[in-house]
């Protein structure tokens, strides 16, 4: 019981995730700044932002649904933290696992997006409602490619459990190299999920102010931002576990270092992506996702389908 609580709240649970996610936000922001030839924030900036926001007043719009408005950030945070426990990090075995946890993780990662939509919708402000509809439109564009990209390696490994998948690729590292298309698709979809340039359409500040989060302030906004930071780390961990299943044989400490390096690489790639591209329009984003990303994911699925047939025969 005490150990389970320790796992949940301290390591690798909430406290670790909190520190790790904010540290990764710092890495992202610093890298973004350095790529733009700027200095960037000091290391404690994300923490300072969080503390400052937490100390600010929470304002709930008069016409908003107060309960939904207050609940949504907590939901988002809870979902992403829960998803983390099922992802293998420094060993091939996740903290918890069962057959089918891959599907659960993908669904848990969808929940934050849905909470963004509900939060925006229940704010009843024009800008947040437009942001909310954009969030949902965008969800349909990137979610399917993401599913297909992550299910393809699972097909090859012939399991629906993330931990079992990692064990499979740990034994057959050569197969991981076949999932390159899926890796790229997943990166693009994760960028969309995190609503960052070029897919920051739902919160494009020059168009619709703060988008979904226009009406949010204080602690609730801090929770939302924390949820997005954790979502970035969890998403990166998921991609690392599925597409970069290397270096598990080094024990706990070595495995941890390798894990952090993997997450760093993915965060860096995402930061580079948002540095070199301009924001797309919503319909351009949907067209791009269905015409380019989805067929690429389908191709990956097809390759793995044929391969698994060949392997099993």
């Amino acid at each position: 019981m005490a150990l389970a609580l320790f796992h949940l709240l301290i390591f690798p649970g909430f406290l670790f995730l909190f520190v790790f996610a904010l540290a990764m936000e710092f890495v992202d922001r610093k890298l973004y700044a350095r790529l733009q030839n700027r200095v960037g924030p000091p290391w404690f900036q994300p923490f300072a932002d969080f503390i400052k926001l937490s100390a600010k007043e929470d304002i709930v719009p008069e016409k908003a649904d107060a309960i939904m408005f207050r609940l949504m950030p907590v939901f988002a945070l809870a979902a992403v933290v829960t998803a983390f426990f099922y992802i293998p990090m420094w060993g091939p075995q996740a903290l918890f696992s069962f057959s089918g946890d891959l599907i659960v993780v993908i669904y848990l990662l969808t929940i934050p997006t849905l909470t963004f939509f509900l939060a925006g919708w229940h704010s009843t402000s024009l800008f947040s409602m437009i942001g909310a509809t954009r969030t949902l439109t965008q969800l349909f564009a990137y979610e399917v490619p993401l599913f297909m990209a992550i299910l393809a390696p699972a097909l090859l490994a012939n399991t629906w459990s993330l931990s079992a998948m990692t064990v499979f690729y740990d034994q057959h590292p050569a197969y991981a190299g076949l999932n390159v298309i899926g890796f790229i698709v997943a990166l693009i979809a994760l960028q969309g999920k995190l609503e960052r340039v070029p897919f920051d359409i739902p919160e494009a500040e020059t168009e619709i102010v703060g988008g979904t989060f226009t009406e949010y302030s204080g602690r609730l906004l801090a929770l939302f931002r924390l949820a997005i930071d954790i979502e970035a780390v969890v998403g990166a961990s998921l991609i690392a576990a599925v597409f970069l299943p290397f270096g598990f044989g080094l024990g706990a400490a070595g495995g941890f270092v390798i894990y952090v390096v993997k997450v760093l690489i993915i965060i860096a790639l995402l930061a580079l992506l948002r540095t070199v591209l301009a924001r797309l329009r919503i319909e351009q984003m949907v067209i791009f996702c269905w015409k380019v990303v989805a067929p690429a994911a389908l191709l990956q699925l097809l390759i793995n389908l044929i391969l698994s047939g060949v392997l099993r025969s």
Partner: peptide
């Protein structure tokens, strides 16, 4: 900046 390409703005 208006089209979300802050890198161009900075440079």
């Amino acid at each position: 900046h208006e089209i979300g390409f802050d890198t161009l703005l900075m440079y």
